[in-house]
Design a protein around this nucleic acid. Structure first.
Lengths: 339, 339
DNA sequence: CTGTTAGCGCCTTCAA
DNA sequence: TTGAAGGCGCTAACAG
């Protein structure tokens, strides 16, 4: 391995001079710079990042934590899309992403402990928000820089997080249904303890209330994310006395399963029932029918998280803890419109 | 920050002794160990990974390279699934994944150059196989440990890669169609220069030939991966003089689009046309109809790649360059069966 | 069983 | 404008 010393020797100057050339220090003569650079090129020198990190006391890498990989929801294209967003910003700043690999919560915790206590990362991005997450407690206690994608239920004023206004989003999309004459509107949500589910549901309820529509009984259903693809949810709906004429589904991925199951029962979207959901992943566009869904701008959520964590790691001030990414509705074909 | 020295001071022994305790060196008295460990606990000591990596000349982290993030195909759940597989093995071995973030090929190249030349990773896993990939040339030239997921077109004997037998897979799944009485079988593939597409197509052709079925003209169609979700492909098929009674699609993700488009034209799978494809991502199970598809064992591909690269990084011998993951067919409802 | 010394590759005062 | 020296935190060889 060719080191700074080799270059020093080759050019007859000292290691510190070479180091300065690398940093393009202004008080090194152009002449020396040329000479040193030539030698670096010739000998194939490249600075050792580990050594550099050691003295810098910083790695310019951020730990990116996914849900436990045992969790099927990991197959949600949401995650690759958000990684894309994070990467886009990181790349510009020469930061790296260290991905978590733990299969269970326990494994993940140990992993993060290693990263953080071992000073192997400068900060953490959590790609999900769980209730009473020990990882969050740990990070908070260590006063380690981290940002959450989504909304923390506790310590909201203290934890930097990037989120949509999911209540508003839920309200907006439900109103779209109402405006088109739908009155019996059900809600199918993912795990009931996910903050994002709660918020979207709240928006849905608000919209109904404001429209003077009294919610039907048993029309709010929670389904294990991805488990059996929303089949159970649909079956519950089919048993209802009063059938809905529209459904708000809290995630596009669940919608796929819901639509398929309806299809099997010979119920067509949107002719028989309208359906809307959230996220606007790639699939929403290509399945039949194409989904009317809230575009939450996943990529941008990622990019903003990246920006926030880098700011925190470089001691820049953040003007707010709660960073809201605006949503918009992608109107497509899963809603029966009023003429 | 509390270092090894602090512990040394606190316990009245030397730094090297502390270091030995960390390594659980057998020639340290139990007594000292206890004492040192107590101090570590009390002062909250944790080894600095960067420092350790510097002397070890190894980081135990592997660069995992995704397709350019500009590429829409990144939304394929294939990638999260393979990350899961890699992570599962890495975690056990205490290895980390450093994820690429480049949006373009150029950006990615520079990034890898940084990782590799800066000795920031011990090895590389490439999650795709491209023709004449400059990254591969670079890695080969530097003689840097790397493994490819998929099949390299060049230097196949030299490059460690983890792949399915895609020719066989293509043949198997096509034969399933033939056995069920299908005769006019089309092929829809992703980008024609992807090795995986080529192989699966080859298998398809072999099956036809062996069954004595002469391939129809213009029944092999390539569609930009994810672009317009296979719509064009379907439209091409609909213009054909002789319509197929079955289709082999090279990727589940494309199938989703293909099925939707057929649906719009009032053509039903499998009643009107049978369809099979490859990968067995989560979606294949929940869409309607559930796909009969080749389960290529994505998770296992990931795990095996992880195993291979770690072996290479730790100078263990690999018994072969080409590691084949067996496939199997997931029989579901997208094929019209012969009673 | 433990301490001393040196060094991994780099950067950064301090001095010249 | 440059060099010498020390140190980032840890490990490993060599002594004892």
């Amino acid at each position: 391995m060719v080191t700074i010393k080799d270059i020093a020797k080759a050019t007859g100057c000292s290691p510190s001079t070479v180091s300065r050339v690398i940093a393009n220090n202004s008080r090194i003569s152009e002449e020396t710079k040329q000479k040193v650079r030539a030698a670096m090129l010739e000998l194939g020198y490249h600075p050792n990042l580990t050594a550099r990190n050691l003295v810098a006391q910083s790695t310019k890498t951020i730990g990116v934590i996914m849900p436990s990989s045992a969790d099927k929801s990991l197959q949600n294209p949401f995650f690759t899309e958000i990684l894309r967003g994070i990467g886009s910003y990181f790349h510009k700043q020469q930061f790296s992403m260290l991905l978590s690999s733990g299969q269970t919560e326990q494994e993940k915790f140990e992993e993060i402990e290693r990263m953080v206590l071992g000073k192997y990362v400068d900060g953490i991005i959590l790609l999900y928000s769980r209730l009473k997450d020990p990882i969050v407690s740990f990070l908070k206690e260590k006063d380690f820089p981290f940002v959450i994608v989504g909304k923390p239920l506790e310590y909201q004023e203290e934890i930097v997080h990037v989120d949509n206004d999911n209540v508003k989003a839920g309200k907006d999309i439900t109103e779209h249904l109402i405006e088109n004459g739908h009155k019996r509107i059900s809600f199918i949500g993912g795990a009931a303890d996910l903050v994002v589910t709660i918020d979207r549901q709240k928006g849905y309820e608000t919209a109904l209330k404001e429209a003077g529509i009294s919610p039907l009984e048993k029309h709010i259903i929670h389904t294990e994310f991805l488990k059996s693809g929303g089949r159970e949810a649909v079956e519950q709906i089919l048993e209802l006395d009063v059938k809905p004429d529209a459904i708000v589904v809290s995630d596009d991925l669940i919608s796929v399963g819901v639509i398929s199951t309806f299809e099997e029962y010979g119920i067509h979207i949107p002719e028989d029932i309208s359906l809307v959901s959230f996220n606007n992943i790639y699939f929403s566009e290509i399945i039949h029918p194409a989904l009317t869904t809230v575009d939450i701008q996943i990529f941008q959520i990622g990019a903003e998280s990246a920006k926030a964590i880098i700011q925190m790691c470089t001691n820049q001030m953040l003007d707010k803890k709660r960073i809201i990414i605006p949503h918009q509705i992608a109107y497509r074909n899963s809603v029966r419109l009023m003429d």
